[in-house]
């Protein structure tokens, strides 16, 4: 497994009040994304454990775009990756921030 860590400054704070959210599963070509409100509001921490080695530059591009485009400030995001494609990663990250924004029931 390869581990990657990113500490990024986030222009927009994550919405909603939920403390955590989880989306996806760890399977071939899939990943799980755990989002926790555990970072300063203007930053986003992303820790990745991935089965696919040597894709650091792609992860870097995906998470930077994500933090620039989606409200991710204040989140600590932990990813277990089963070798998902970048488009799937981007989709799960977007699903994750939408889920943590959902009103609590």
């Amino acid at each position: 497994m390869e581990t990657l860590s990113f500490r990024l400054s986030a222009p927009t704070r994550a919405g909603g009040t939920r403390m955590q959210a989880i989306v996806g599963v760890v399977a071939s070509g899939n990943l799980e994304v755990l989002l926790e409100r555990a970072a300063p509001a203007d930053s986003c921490m992303i820790d990745i454990t991935t089965a696919a080695h040597g894709f650091g530059a792609v992860w870097d591009a995906v998470v930077r775009d994500f933090v620039a485009r989606r409200p991710a400030g204040g989140l600590r995001i932990s990813i277990n990756d089963g070798g998902a494609r970048p488009d799937t990663v981007a989709l799960r990250l977007a699903q994750g921030v939408r889920k943590i924004e959902e009103p609590e029931r």
């Binding site: 894709f55 070798g83 494609r85 970048p86 488009d87």
Partner: peptide, 8 residues
């Protein structure tokens, strides 16, 4: 197509 295909 998707930007990445089978086996990435």
């Amino acid at each position: 197509g998707e930007t990445f295909g089978e086996r990435n």
